[in-house]
């Protein structure tokens, strides 16, 4: 099996994807990802010179527009109903400025 990724690489990707991994998970994830990436090799072996990419299965689609008029939508209460924490009609998060200062 080719080593496509080191544990450090995986740690970096996990940080980018905002997923915490402990050391044991990190080791297993590195093994799994290397094994999966091995199976993707055929993609790198095609002669794709001049082949246009297909980003969407229906070729004929174009942008869909509508009049810019108000449509029924959630009330503030409905939008907040699933929020783990809320305050004064807003989503509540830890302080994002300065030294922590949680609430």
């Amino acid at each position: 099996m080719t080593q496509h990724l080191t544990e450090d690489d995986v740690r970096g990707m996990a940080a980018y994807a905002r997923i915490g991994l402990d050391d044991q998970e990190l080791a297993q994830m590195t093994v799994d990802l290397n094994s999966i990436i091995d199976t993707l090799k055929p993609i790198t072996e095609f002669d794709l010179e001049g082949v246009e990419p297909t980003f969407h299965p229906i070729g004929s689609l174009s942008n869909v527009m509508r009049e810019d008029v108000e449509q029924p939508s959630f009330t503030q209460d409905e939008a907040l109903a699933n929020a783990p924490r809320q305050q004064d009609g807003s989503f509540l998060i830890p302080s994002i400025l300065g030294e922590g200062g949680d609430r």
């Binding site: 990724l5 690489d9 995986v10 990707m13 996990a14 980018y16 994807a17 997923i19 991994l21 998970e25 994830m29 799994d32 990802l33 999966i36 990436i37 993707l40 993609i43 790198t44 095609f46 794709l48 082949v51 246009e52 990419p53 297909t54 980003f55």
Partner: peptide, 26 residues
């Protein structure tokens, strides 16, 4: 987690041109 991290890797700079773009051509 595996799928998210795999996606994170495949879309990262440099890797994108090795897998993602060719996959769309395939």
């Amino acid at each position: 987690k595996r799928r998210i991290l795999l996606g994170s890797y495949l879309l990262s700079a440099g890797v994108y041109d090795t897998y993602y773009y060719p996959a769309q051509q395939v």
